[in-house]
Design a binder for these strands. Structure first.
Lengths: 172, 172
DNA sequence: TTTGAAAATTAGATACT
DNA sequence: AGTATCTAATTTTCAAA
């Protein structure tokens, strides 16, 4: 982002960055689909006050532009034998920045990893994990994280809850 | 769960806790639907090697048992004018534990909040937020968090990336 | 872009093994 | 639990405005 863009974006104007170009109808569609991806197209169309075919075309456009990245079932981790969640803060070795992408890919492959947060500034990040029990958590840290040469140290915080609020409301 | 069930579940056997009772077919269905909630039932059935009607019944059962909690579109926050993400650590006042639920509900209503992590032990937690820009982030912390009486202090870390790996793989 | 209407595909329900 | 078959609902395409 260059300086003029930066200045423009920091102004009070309502426009988005990145050729997004969403109108109110798009935003309504996004809100509804985030809430329930199974909502039939004709129901969305009715809610938006447009024809079903128009709604269909808009949704496809949102997908093609990468605004809708996909649709996913939300599965209760506890119900599939992952009743324990934790946040693990990982401090990286100072020299490990170069291979950061490789390490990220490694983390993303671990079945327990639900989310990876890359923090700016520091050489560390956070991972959100879901495991069967505390033994598995210990095992994960010891055998999959601490042993990696990139890792300088870890710090684990057990969660007693994780909540994802309804929607990423466009604007507001 | 009675004692004999508990003992059975805690053994090395493949069974899960909490009347989950998932077999390999269920796990495959969960994996596929987490990956792509739009996958048609007959495609899932074919992948699982069962009849479409059987697959349909299994999916419904997974929903009714709360194992599948819902289906959601994944919307790119940057595309809807929320190009800046951050993790905010919130330390609560010692006496604020009683009203924790109320405060949680307050947080969940904030449009910027994407996820709330309740950390055990300490009287604090983390929220994952997505906002338009750094001005909005400052405003969020100043006007929506710091002013709350429950909040003893906050600490903000800007993210340069957040990744949700494909699936919550059942077992592995 | 939007629309209505056809065509193709899918979901949901039922009865039966 | 699983399957086959039927019907309703939904998605998808498309010519036209």
């Amino acid at each position: 982002m260059n300086i003029s863009e930066s200045l423009r974006n920091s102004s009070a104007g309502p426009k988005n960055l990145r050729g997004a170009e969403l109108d109110d109808t798009d935003r309504l569609i996004l809100r509804l689909l985030q809430d329930d991806a199974k909502l039939p197209n004709n129901a969305i169309a009715a809610a938006a006050g447009i024809a079903a075919s128009t709604c269909h075309a808009r949704i496809r456009s949102l997908q093609e532009r990468g605004i809708i990245r996909g649709y996913h079932a939300d599965v209760d981790p506890a119900a599939v034998g992952r009743g324990l969640q934790a946040l693990i803060s990982i401090r990286l070795q100072a020299h490990a920045r170069a291979n950061l992408t490789r390490f990220e890919e490694y983390l993303a492959e671990l079945p327990a990893v639900e989310g990876i947060f890359f923090v700016t500034g520091d050489r560390d990040f956070l991972i959100h994990v879901a495991v069967p029990d505390s033994a598995a958590l210990r095992e994960l840290v010891a055998s999959n994280l601490s042993v990696r040469p990139e890792v300088a140290g870890t710090s684990t915080a057990v969660l007693f809850d994780y909540v994802r609020p309804g929607t990423v409301r466009p604007e507001d």
